[in-house]
């Protein structure tokens, strides 16, 4: 323990010192975070020739959008393929998200409100799904999908992605339901609602932020997934973006500006989605999951 005078002196000097350290730290961290993204964009604005120079052009001498127009041109072969991948990703991610919410909402509600035998065990089992890496399930799931006739279909991906998203979705949503006073549902049931009506009219509207947060998480997870898509899909026409762009550029591996443009386009939807809705995600973590 320090004496009061000692700490009083330190308190007078303390906050400023702390604040400046914090600011410096944030600036450095921001540089570390943003630099790769900036370089990705700068490179994507160069021609293949301009990118292969030493020392590099820190700013493109002749900025060009040709990499983007080529990827997004529906009349060219590359554009057609790329747009196809994009559409596949969008489709798989959207369906996964909808199903994840439909499945997670009742499960989270039950884990929050009911005390049935086996509740803890089942809740643990659901949470444990997060512990297993995708790779160790590849072989058995591939065989399973083959048996179900789902290989080379988006169904195989959707079914698999559903299980990635579910544990966190259930956990986040359960946190939300835990914070909704049970008296609101009791009041509704006394006011003439059935259990189900109380859930639909009272609980659901109050858990919208949680459902939005869950949806973002599921969507991003599905959009970014690589390993299963890489294994389950062999047909070009079915491929999603993370696998698709790889196929593209491993053929002529040196087209770095094109690859950067493709990763940029691939990142835009999830980044925009997340930035617009991030407050829900942060709120979900703060109100539900982290607080005990």
């Amino acid at each position: 323990m320090t004496t009061i005078t000692e700490s009083a002196v330190r308190r007078r000097n303390g906050p400023d010192w702390w604040r400046w350290t914090g600011r410096l730290f944030l600036v450095l961290l921001l540089g570390f975070t943003v630099m790769p993204m900036v370089w990705m964009i700068i490179t994507s604005l160069k021609t293949g020739f301009a990118a292969m120079q030493y020392p590099p052009q820190w700013w493109p001498a002749e900025p060009t959008l040709q990499n983007y127009t080529r990827l997004l041109d529906p009349s060219g072969r590359i554009g057609q393929d790329f747009l196809h991948y994009f559409w596949n990703s969008l489709w798989v991610s959207t369906i996964t998200t909808i199903l994840a919410v439909v499945v997670a909402v009742p499960a989270a509600y039950a884990f929050s409100r009911f005390r049935f035998p086996g509740r803890n065990f089942l809740f643990f089992a659901v949470l444990l799904r997060n512990m297993f890496p995708a790779v160790v399930f590849l072989v058995p799931l591939f065989i399973l999908m083959k048996a179900l006739g789902l290989v080379n279909t988006h169904g195989s991906l959707i079914l698999t992605y559903l299980t990635f998203g579910l544990p966190l979705a259930i956990w986040l949503l359960k946190g939300f339901y835990d914070n909704i006073p049970i008296q609101l549902e009791q009041a509704a049931r006394i006011d003439g609602a059935t259990r189900f009506q109380a859930f639909i009219y009272i609980v659901m509207p109050l858990s919208t932020p949680g459902i939005i947060a869950t949806s973002i998480y599921s969507f991003i997870g599905a959009w970014n997934e690589y390993i299963y898509a890489y294994t389950f899909l062999t047909k070009q026409s079915q491929m999603t973006l993370p696998v698709g762009i790889q196929r593209f550029f491993s053929e002529n591996a040196t087209d770095w500006p094109g690859l950067m443009a493709a990763t940029f386009i691939m990142s835009v939807p999830v980044v925009v989605l997340f930035l617009v809705l991030q407050k829900y995600f942060v709120r979900a973590l703060t109100e539900g999951a982290v607080k005990h």
């Binding site: 975070t33 790769p36 993204m37 970014n224 790889q246 690859l259 950067m260 990763t263 990142s267 999830v270």
Partner: peptide, 23 residues
């Protein structure tokens, strides 16, 4: 600022790998 710092977590690991491979 928080949003910018969160971007790496949101983008796919595939995209991150290519970008850093290039860096």
């Amino acid at each position: 600022l928080r949003g910018l710092l969160l971007i790496p977590w949101v983008v796919s690991a595939v995209a991150a790998s290519y970008v850093w491979k290039w860096l």
